[in-house]
Amino acid sequence: MLPPIAWYLTLTGVIALGSIFWIVAAGASHKAPPVSVQTARIRRLCTWALGLLAFPITLASLSYAPLVTEAAIPAGTESVEVVGHQWFWELSQTQVPAGELIEFKVTSADVNHGFAIYDPESRLIAQTQAMPGYTNSLQVRFEEPGTYKILCLEYCGLVHHGMSSTIEVIHSQHAAN
C-alpha cells in the first residue's frame, strides 16, 4: 500500500512544482517590476502552510513507524533466528503462522546484508539490516498464507543478487498442529 502512495505523492509534487517552473520560465521573457513585497508575503504563507502541514504529517507518520523496541515485544511471540552469510540465508525455521506477530532476530556472520521479505505478489513488505556483531529485531505479521521470498538488499559482494530464500506462511491451525 505504501509504495503506490509514495509514487503518487511524488508524481503530484513533481508535476505541481514543474508546472510552477514552466509557467515562470514561459513568462520570464516579459519584463515587469520586481515583486519583492508580494514575494515576501507568498514566502511567509508558504512557510506557515508547510510548517502547519509538517507537524501533523510527522506525528501521523511516526505512529506507523517501525520503532518497537525488543523489550516491547509481547511475551510468547514466535521468533525466527536469521543469519546472513556470503551468499545465503540461514533461518532457524522456514514455516511461520499467518496472522500472528513474528519476530525475526537478524544478524550476519560476515559482512552487512539486508534482510528483505517480499510477499507472494513480489511486493516488499518489510526489511532490516543484517550486521556482524548486532542483532536487529524485525517484527512482521503476515496477513496471508503463501510463499514469501527473502532477498538481500545490502550489497554484499559477487553473488549479492543471488542471495535468496523463502518462508512458508501457513494458516495458524496448521502451525498449531
Binding site: 505504501l2 507518520s61 506507523y64 517501525p66 516488499l124 526489511q127
Partner: peptide, 9 residues
C-alpha cells in the same frame, strides 16, 4: 520511517 521500510535500498 514507515516508507523507508518498503523503499530502502
Amino acid at each position: 520511517l514507515a516508507m523507508n521500510r518498503v523503499l530502502h535500498n
